[in-house]
Amino acid sequence: MHSIGYLLSDGFQVMAIASQSVFEYANHVAGEPFYRMANYSAHGGEVCSSLGMSVGTRRVSARASVDTWIAAGVNTPLDTPPPREILAFLRRTGTRARRIAGICTGSFVLAEAGLLSNRRATTHWFYAREMQSRFPDVRIEDDRIYIVDGPIWTSAGMTAGLDLALAMVEKDLGPDVARSVAHKLVMPQRRSGGQSQHSEMLDLAPKSDRIQNALNYARKNLGRPLTVEELAGEAHLSPRQFSRVFTEETGQSPAKAIEALRLEAARLMIEKSRHPLETIAKETGFRDRRHMREAFMRGFGLPPQEVRRRV
């Protein structure tokens, strides 16, 4: 049996322990209790979450037989230092575990304990710059869902903890079990670690339904040319009105926004499939592979081949 210990402190994010459901359902799919989970804290007893909900914990101890330690994040990592007892434990004993992980701002706990020195790591995008400033010897990659560097695992914010837990299940029990767990948890997709934390549709965030409808139409039809006239028709506006309203609501021109959606779709296909780059370029509306490469260099500073290699 594989034992997982969650390290909690007052103000922890409830989403961190939501990832326990991934291991719970992995046991169901595997047909045996492969994972055993327990919550730990500096002194044991009840620990209060940021939501105000209390959770019972065991006192962290060197005698605890734990294979994977997972540090939960807090909403205010810059103002809420990790308990000294937890840091001392991780420095002294935690490294004996098979894996150590930080969910969301739990990465700050690992960094404070010195476990991320000269390693790649990620955290919630909002705190990535501050984390890099505080811990210059950590190689922060602020646009990743999760990162595995040897025995150290770190994830982006909130729901990315589910992806990290699912990746652990895949590592332990194989891709078929991981897919089945994702299906049972109604997770829309199993995101790879190299996938971006950001979503272009969320970033554009139009204020009106008519522009949102045009964007939804564009995303469903990226594989063919999309003109301003066509999108304006979906929004029931003249092309001139559409361009003006679109730019006012999203801060981007329609052409710029459509290229961003094509880039996001192409990147997802590169990360999640083995299709040739020529096929991906065609499916996502680029003229050819060269056109897609130019867009990748503008948008990501990397060619598509490098994105695939990193994944």
Rank of each mutant, 00 (worst) to 15 (best):
R267D: 13
I140E: 11
I211W: 00
S41R: 06
I147V: 15
F246D: 00
C48I: 12
L215G: 01
H2G: 01
V29N: 09
T93P: 10
G106H: 12
I100D: 13
L263W: 07
L263F: 07
V228C: 05
G150S: 13
T284K: 05
T95Q: 11
S180V: 12
R59Q: 13
A218E: 00
G157N: 01
R308S: 13
D142M: 12
V245Y: 04
E234M: 03
H2S: 06
V245G: 01
P225Y: 00
E112A: 05
L51D: 09
E200P: 04
N216M: 02
L115N: 10
D176H: 13
A156R: 05
N216I: 06
A235N: 04
H43T: 04
R129L: 15
H43E: 11
D163H: 04
A71F: 10
A255W: 03
A121K: 13
F135M: 04
I152C: 11
A165Y: 03
E294K: 06
S107T: 15
H198A: 09
M297P: 04
V29E: 11
L162M: 10
S65P: 06
Q13E: 09
V60R: 09
D137Y: 01
G45W: 08
N27C: 10
S180M: 14
L302W: 02
A72W: 13
L263P: 02
L87A: 08
S196V: 09
A38M: 07
S155L: 05
F34R: 09
E278P: 07
V186N: 01
T76L: 10
L51Q: 07
S196H: 04
G251K: 03
S133R: 15
P175A: 03
V148Q: 11
G5F: 15
M1A: 14
T159C: 00
T105V: 02
E264H: 05
T122D: 04
H275D: 08
R58Y: 11
H43M: 04
V177H: 07
T154W: 09
D137G: 06
R179W: 03
A62W: 03
V181S: 02
R98E: 08
P83L: 14
G114T: 11
F300W: 05
H2L: 07
S19I: 06
I270V: 15
R190I: 06
A235T: 05
F300V: 10
C104R: 04
H198T: 07
V181I: 06
W153A: 13
G193F: 01
I103K: 06
Q195T: 09
V169R: 04
E230C: 06
L226N: 02
E259M: 01
P188G: 03
R310V: 05
R91Q: 15
G114Y: 14
R179I: 01
R134I: 02
I70W: 07
K282Q: 08
V74M: 07
T159K: 02
E278C: 10
A64N: 11
V245H: 05
R262K: 12
A72C: 15
M168S: 11
A101L: 14
F23Y: 12
Q241D: 11
A113E: 00
H183C: 07
L8R: 14
Q212S: 15
T105F: 00
G299W: 07
E130P: 00
P83N: 11
Y146L: 01
A72P: 15
E130G: 05
T123Q: 06
D137E: 08
G106F: 12
I258W: 01
I147N: 02
A121R: 13
A295R: 13
